[in-house]
Amino acid sequence: MMELVCPAGTPAALRAAVEAGAQTIYCGFADETNARNFPGLNFDRDEMAAGVAFAHARGSKVLVAINTFPHAGAEAIWHRAIADAETAGADAVILADIGLLAHAAENHPGLRRHLSVQAAAANPDVINFYAEAFGVKRVVLPRVLTVAEIAAINREIDVETEVFVFGGLCVMAEGRCSLSSYATGKSPNMNGVCSPASHVVYAEESGGLTARLGGFTIHRTAKGQPAPYPTLCKGCFTSPSKTGSDQTGHVFEDPASLDATQLIPALAHAGVTALKIEGRQRSRAYVAEVVRSFRAALEAHAAGRPMPEAALAKLSEGQAATTGAYAKTWR
């Protein structure tokens, strides 16, 4: 059976995910060292050690994401996070920065290293580079690849692959996007946040609700319509055209979230080791429900039964789901 890698933003979510059948949990410390650095989220050092002990006692693993890019002059904060993850008993650290990978390989050789999606390693050559240079054992693939491309990658590499199957969908190559900081000054790479709530303002205007990020209008929804969170790349914009046919719409991506449940058999066939669920910012009830659903789907696949239909539709943002880049037509 493929490994299910589940998010935990809090110790309670970690316990809920383990109890719902997650083989592996990923989480981060409560600071800028991880890419879900949201207020009230993540683990202090004692919580991490307790969480790892809880998971290990039930046969589950814990991966610690230290996947932002250390600030010049402040690398010690990130180095300490790696040392503390090892002390807490983490089964692996998830890293993106070259300097941090080199540091971990040299100073913590016994700690397994996974390559974060924030490194956007999108082909066999670059994956083999990370494996050879830094001893990376698993790579989380960026959400820009088709299933066929994933299968081709797995034929040319020796390390494991992990792919996203559910939750928020980045349409840009991760770790290489400064859209959020262009509008707000806060970026995924440097601050572990994207389109942060601290910079969102809602206004009742002309019969609808306008959502702005750093003063830039991301979308306007009519009264009574569900208003999705104003993530920059899911916004509604207008592109003026020289030929007069202006285009208004979701220029980058619709406010849909990823659901690749139906692709589980194809991803297994493509040689994928682990399936990842996005959402460390989600509630423990959400995490438990998604984990149960995917665990059931994986068991169905292992038993040769068909995939369950749309069990998670109500958990998707804006009620719409997409298989994203896994289908070539998405491009």
Partner: peptide, 24 residues
């Protein structure tokens, strides 16, 4: 992504002679 000293050092040890930093 050259954000810090460790990354710059590693790239220079691999042969980098000129580095344009990320605009961010």
């Amino acid at each position: 992504n050259v954000y810090n000293e460790g990354t710059l050092r590693w790239l220079v040890s691999r042969g980098a002679t000129r580095v344009c930093l990320p605009p961010e």
